[in-house]
Nucleic acid binder design. Structure first.
Ligand SMILES: [Mn+2]
Ligand SMILES: [Mn+2]
Ligand SMILES: [Mn+2]
Ligand SMILES: [Mn+2]
Lengths: 221, 221
DNA sequence: ATAATTATTTAGATTTACCTAAACTTTATT
DNA sequence: AATAAAGTTTAGGTAAATCTAAATAATTAT
């Protein structure tokens, strides 16, 4: 596996993410949005990544990772999520603080370091936000049955993952006492704005917006 | 304290090191040597760092850190040495493996991260090579009495620090069983090539070159 | 099918951190 | 003091990663 620059790694990671989210071929605009950069910059980089055979790309046709690109992406994600575990489990950071730091730490490229880190952490399978951690070979623990809360139909639910991108969301969840493993009772769904009234045992009920519910992954209990 | 690029941080660190080693004003050439770059590049960067008031610099007159530059340097050194401790103490790396990795990790800039790391490690005072670790305010534990082995006059000596830059040197020391705290008896000093015959308790005597002896810091027992 | 809109690419600049080669200063040697 | 050598700076260039503005292609609406 050849050596990537930090910019290249960030592109690969974002392409992976957008593909995961269902984009058939990742568009220049979508990628520019994800990376907070301009479409023209994306086109430039697309040519470079194609040259390196990490993506397939034809003018105006969008972007897809090659097998090699996917492998690279999983490796970066592994590093990112292991560092997040380290920060939470060993340095007592809370879950809304770690994503940003992991964005930097993930670019320290050393197989040995990351494998030792994994071992030190007890080879965790999920990160602090409930996302699975790829193993050294790039295999990711089967994504367990999970649905965004806005789509879930059951009444009793358990939180299995949350989006890690927004500090504000995670702080809101802290305030409401929602963490991984928290059990929720859906009291009511309001059609007007798709807000949801929830109850956690021993706590007063509260309402969350559709925005929030889309970012909480749950499974029925 | 303003934000520095990785290149700027590396320059600051190298200037600090050369000043420590006694250079009155750090020359363009010396710095180019230390950074494995070209003198012309150093001149470019010197202008930038002067602009940022991290160094004092006049054409042809060499470079010195300002108070602010020194503070920045100590902060980078703190990060470097704490990561070295982490790698050795927590991830079981050996002392010759950690410098390179710390060269990368040191550039992750977060006060909170590094202070938490320090705490996690038990606020260590020295790194795996015996070098003192500056505290959060940039104060460095008094450099304890130490002399390079080639200059030491006593017969019984204890190893208090070693140079961390050469993997080959550290591997040689591993092979000979020399670590921090190791007690050495000087059997003989050979004037011809300044090599030194040493003995460690319960081991056969062996000889080291002047090169090696310059990179082992000792104190009399 | 044509026109309008949106998406994407190209052209041309900019910034950072390098480089080489040539010019210039400083220092050492005769 | 003059010359040679060594050290340093300038001039001009390159590569990566960005940008803006203009051109072009694809999509959507009329
Ligand atoms: Mn994250
Ligand atoms: Mn995460
Ligand atoms: Mn080191
Ligand atoms: Mn060290």
């Amino acid at each position: 596996m050849m050596n990537l620059t930090i910019a290249e790694e960030n592109y690969i990671k974002s392409i992976y993410k957008l593909e995961e989210e269902g984009q058939e071929a990742v568009s220049t605009n979508a990628l520019a949005g994800e990376l907070e950069t301009k479409p023209a910059s994306v086109t430039d980089m697309a040519k470079k990544l194609k040259e390196k055979k990490l993506i397939s790309y034809e003018k105006y046709q969008g972007i897809n990772l090659t097998a090699e690109g996917k492998k690279a992406a999983l490796n970066i994600i592994r590093r990112h999520r292991l560092w997040e575990c380290f920060l939470v489990d060993k340095l007592s950071f809370s879950w809304e603080e770690v994503h940003e730091l992991a964005e930097e730490l993930e670019h320290v490229r050393s197989e040995k370091l990351i494998n030792r880190l994994s071992e030190f952490l007890g080879n965790p399978q999920i990160d602090p936000h409930g996302d699975p951690i790829p193993d050294a070979q790039g295999k990711m623990g089967k994504p367990r049955p999970q649905t965004p809360l806005d789509k879930a139909r059951a009444k009793r639910l358990e939180v299995v993952a949350v989006s890690d991108k927004s500090t504000a969301l995670l702080e809101f969840l802290n305030a409401k006492g929602i963490r991984l493993g928290t059990q929720l009772d859906v009291i009511e769904r309001y059609e007007f704005d798709n807000s949801i009234e929830l109850k956690i045992r021993n706590q007063p009920a509260f309402t969350i917006s559709e925005q929030v519910s889309k970012n909480i992954m749950v499974k029925p209990i």
